[in-house]
Design a protein around this nucleic acid. Structure first.
Length: 110
DNA sequence: GACATGACGATTT
DNA sequence: GAAATCGCCATGT
């Protein structure tokens, strides 16, 4: 079932996210070549549940908001995992988002 | 194949 | 500055 190589690329990048760091759907999409493919990245995450163990909790939207927490096993799983890795969460949003933001374009291409 | 939806993002009102 | 709207691409019905 070759859904799309796009998903595979997303999984690869997400799995490369260092512990204690987070990234955004748009940044991953941009790294893949399309800034507008952010929605596809989100879809890939949704499929990631039955593909492999993907640290989806390290992926948030551009605002640093934990939009996908509701898709996890439990609602608090996402922020719990992030806090466990040293990421501070405030009202379902990452506090020092810019500080822990991991950009694949900047980190991988460097 | 068309219509509707979605873990987004940027732009416009 | 917040809310509403469009754009992008893939999936589900």
């Amino acid at each position: 079932m070759q859904s799309s190589n796009y998903f595979n690329d997303v999984y690869d990048v997400v799995k490369l996210i260092p512990k204690g760091r987070v990234t955004s759907y748009g940044s991953i999409a941009k790294y893949l070549g399309t800034t507008k493919g952010a929605r596809i990245v989100g879809w890939a995450m949704n499929n990631s549940h039955h593909n492999s163990i993907i640290p989806a909790h390290r992926v948030v939207n551009r605002n640093g908001l934990l939009t996908g927490k509701h898709h996890f096993t439990d609602e608090k799983t996402m922020e719990r995992l992030l806090k466990k890795e040293g990421v501070l969460i405030k009202n379902n949003k990452i506090e020092n988002f810019e500080n822990i933001f991991w950009d694949p374009i900047k980190e991988l291409e460097l």
